[in-house]
């Protein structure tokens, strides 16, 4: 038996909205300690990794480990039934054929229930090696989203360069070439800070369209954390306060 209740249901709505354009069918791993999912996009260039801790739920019970195969596209349709201030409860029996989703609004006495049919997915899990990222950039999530959108109109590819003084996003195309350079900014307004932790410089190229999809998650956190390592995929990380973390992994483009 699995049951989890989230008082701030809006978070779950945002999480589904943040991953629905990247992954289609996912296996949601339920365990006594929390909920996790790992899935790649169809081209195996991007990977979504979500981890939610049981502590973040108003009520959480999972007697055993379970795997719930879910069509994210269908889950997104069901989540549309939720109002932004609904409490959301997820329920599934052992060997369940469906996931029961309940939206409650204690103020308006409105309750919505939906049994989402589960699907069987034989998706293989990828082993993500523990990596010591030699560059970690913490940046305002809205600002990073804006930079990506603006650069995308100038080029499909962005080159990210880090060093101890700045992180640089450069583009080059038939329009011309240029870069956005952000230095360390410890302004007193915390959410405007840009924090660079660079032990080794990194320079890699990435397809911006994936970054734009990842940035849908910027509604979940005021900060985006970019973790870079010269030989590893980029990690774009959004911490979900009191609940967990949503990470996106993006394979680089190798310049010839």
């Amino acid at each position: 038996m699995f049951e989890a209740k989230l008082t701030e249901g809006l978070i779950l709505k945002k999480i589904v909205e943040s991953i629905k354009d990247i992954v289609t069918d996912v296996n949601i791993d339920i365990s006594p300690s929390g909920i996790s999912l790992q899935a790649m996009d169809s081209s195996h260039v991007a990977l979504v990794s979500l981890n939610l801790s049981m502590d973040g739920f108003e009520h959480y019970r999972a007697d055993t480990n379970m795997v719930l195969g879910v069509s994210i596209a269908n889950l997104a349709k069901v989540m549309k039934l939720a109002d932004n201030n609904d409490q959301i409860t997820l329920q599934a029996d052992q060997e369940a054929t469906h996931l029961k989703i309940i939206f409650e609004n204690p103020k308006t006495e409105r309750t919505t229930e939906f049994n989402l049919n589960l699907i069987t997915i034989d998706s293989e899990h990828l082993a993500i090696p523990e990596t010591e990222y030699s560059s970690v950039v913490t940046i305002n999530s809205g600002e990073f989203s804006k930079i990506c959108k603006e650069l995308f109109s100038l080029s499909e590819t962005v080159q990210i360069t880090t060093n101890t003084d700045y992180v640089q996003f450069s583009v080059e195309g038939e329009v011309g070439s240029g870069q956005v350079r952000l230095g360390h900014n410890d302004s007193e307004k915390k959410e405007d800070q840009t924090i660079l932790e660079v032990s080794e410089s990194v320079q890699q190229q990435f397809a911006i369209r994936y970054l734009n999809m990842f940035n849908k998650a910027s509604t979940l956190s005021s900060f985006t954390r970019l973790c870079l390592h010269q030989e590893q995929p980029l990690v774009v990380e959004f911490k979900i306060d009191n609940l967990g973390v949503l990470k996106y992994f993006l394979a680089p483009k190798i310049s010839d």
Binding site: H44, L126, Q205, F249, A251, I254
Partner: peptide
Amino acid sequence: KGAQKSLGNFFKKQ
């Protein structure tokens, strides 16, 4: 522009 790598180049199937 560089060739797009896939995650399979970096992460092994479990």
